[in-house]
Design a protein around this nucleic acid. Structure first.
Lengths: 205, 205
DNA sequence: TAGATTGTTAATCGATTAACAATC
DNA sequence: TAGATTGTTAATCGATTAACAATC
């Protein structure tokens, strides 16, 4: 177990990494000023964030892009592939299943599930949609680490329960409703209407 | 201009409101304890958050659901409809355009844009996809307040530039890359790979 | 009045920023 | 050595929590 990284830093490290991947790994060095400009933060904050990593930059020079990217990956546990189960084969699920791009490597969406018989068996990104009732049994054979909920509101809690039963440790919930899970399961919620409403507040001032 | 609400509170108010809408407006009162349980926070935090509103609860009783919902809506500027322009008519854009549900009322996705000639003219949720080059001119006739970027990485900055030129004040960016906009434009970023990577950190400890 | 529950003040905790030391 | 840039310490700021007063 490595040293704990502050939550705010954990949220920003992926953005830094994404930028490093964009400029291209193995292309020399980069300064905190450039990373900050590209990711919308301040240079001090970038340096403070990066100070939690095992790797340090070189004063007067900057950070070696390759080594920095590796250090961030290591710190975020991105040095291994994680199996992902996606539940919900509607428009959103289809969009998520088709998600590629360099930043998505390391997350292997192994199967897509749905409960609608019309969708079960259909092909999405080359995968035949499976019955959500098979999720727990499938996980016994090959465990999932991450579950993605891309169902309508009404189905979300049942899906979360199944994911917990399948011993999934982290859930990404797009369903627009808070799901209840045991405290050891990590949940992140992404909801369009919540985002709109937050923006609305800042528009109105 | 009303009193400023702390950023952390602004992020949570939509979740409270969503829950109130779920239990049903006009059904009596509700306690901070129940709101906390349903939204995954603590009761003190709920009360502290709600103390920023114009409306106060009743000691010994709780909050009137109807009045509380109204007060949150008012505070978030949800007492009016906002026009939304969605750019990117792929899987994700289609999913977002089809988003409905009570929480989405008040955000009127008026038009969907794309730059791919094959998609222009196609129907998405009853709207004919328009050429993204028309965005600025369209906005001159009827302004948009919010822009949603649902394009691939490569197109995102150009779309953001067009949105700024169209005088859009708030952007919801699903493109997985940080876009540069003037400081008065509010941007929120939603990115699948970033979410996966954050979850990865918590899985690895 | 007693019980329930909100609202506020102060303390603690965590995050950001300023200032500057370190060192390539 | 001088210039550039990182890394750290301390100060400030903002968010959360504890304790309790207020009041229905």
């Amino acid at each position: 177990m490595t040293k704990k990284i502050p939550a705010a830093t954990v949220r920003r490290l992926p953005t830094y990494l994404r930028y490093l991947e964009e400029v291209g790994i193995g292309v020399g060095t980069i300064g905190s000023e450039e990373i900050a400009a590209a990711t919308g933060g301040s240079a001090v904050q970038v340096r403070k964030d990066l100070s939690h990593l095992r790797y340090s930059g070189t004063r007067g020079v900057g950070y070696d892009i390759d080594l920095l990217a590796r250090a961030i990956k290591k710190a975020l546990g991105l040095d291994r592939t994680r199996r992902v189960a996606l539940v919900g084969a509607g428009n959103l699920g289809t969009a998520l299943a088709g998600y590629t791009g360099f930043a998505a490597t390391g997350f292997d969406i192994t199967a897509v599930y749905d409960k609608n018989p019309r969708r079960i068996g259909a092909l999405i990104s080359g995968m035949a949609v499976r019955n959500v009732e098979d999720l727990v049994a499938d996980a016994r054979i090959a465990p999932y680490e991450i579950g993605v909920i891309a169902t309508p509101v009404g189905a979300a809690q049942a899906v979360a329960d199944a994911m917990v039963e399948a011993k999934i440790g982290a859930i990404l919930n797009f369903a627009g409703v808070t799901v209840k899970v045991p405290p050891e399961v990590v949940v992140r919620n992404v909801d369009l209407s919540t985002e709109f409403r937050i923006l609305s507040y800042y528009l109105s001032r």
